[in-house]
Amino acid sequence: MARRFSVQRQTGFATIAIICFFALYLPIVVLVFYAFNSADSLSSFQGLSLRWFARAFENRQVIDASIRSLQIAGVAATAATIAATMAAIATTRTEPYRGLTLKYAFINQPLMVPEIVTAVALLIFFARIKIWTGYNGLGYLIAAHTAFCVPFAYLPIRARLENMDSTLEKAAADLYATPWNAFRYVTLPLLWPGILAGFMLAFVISLDDVVITEFVKSAGQDTLPTYMLGQIRRTITPEMNAISALFLLLSICVVIVFFVVNRKRV
């Protein structure tokens, strides 16, 4: 035998894995590469340039959509994280009680329903409310984003709570910490990485959303993804690649922060 026996080795698995990683990154690399194309179209590559990035930054619609995306994601992720943290504390480390399963089902419900169905439901629902109230602002988008962000924020916070040694809070109580002090000085600091992870997950999920936003938005409320969807359906210029590359950069930064925060074991 050329290779020494290893308990973990399975023939061909490593090859398949490497192919997968290659296939996952090749399109992204090509996409980013063409963002630096100096040509007018994507049909040929004519040399490096930053002109499409400059173009993107001059595009009023892109800037507006980006700001709107960040606004919605910021508010929705914050609200969802606060609600999810409270819910996680309410649903973990307890003996089962009446309604606990119902709570799980409710909180995770947005994960179980195809996005398109939620999108349609919100379209119908908000259309009514718009008629009743006459309000047309960003509130609808923020409410919708908050709702589907709740389960994403909830997951890491809950996981962190469940893994937390409950004797630590007992120890705090034993050392004269009132329930509030035990929460403030022991539970919250230990839960913090989970809360941060939950927030970032919710933030990215909100930033990435296309379908629900597409159905809920009123005229002139494009977020960056819905703006891009509209453009991709028409004609594609390297400007879209440039915007995508910047968007990718943002995502990668958030993932790396998430990774560092979540992996660091206290």
């Binding site: 969802a80 609600a83 409710f106 909180i107 908050t146 709702a147 909830y154």
Partner: peptide, 22 residues
């Protein structure tokens, strides 16, 4: 515990589950 989970339940009910019934 019910009080604490109320905000999460309400927002999901209002902007996800409820509209499904409509």
């Amino acid at each position: 515990r019910w009080l604490l989970s109320l905000p999460a339940l309400l927002i999901v009910l209002l902007a996800a589950t409820g509209p499904l019934l409509i």
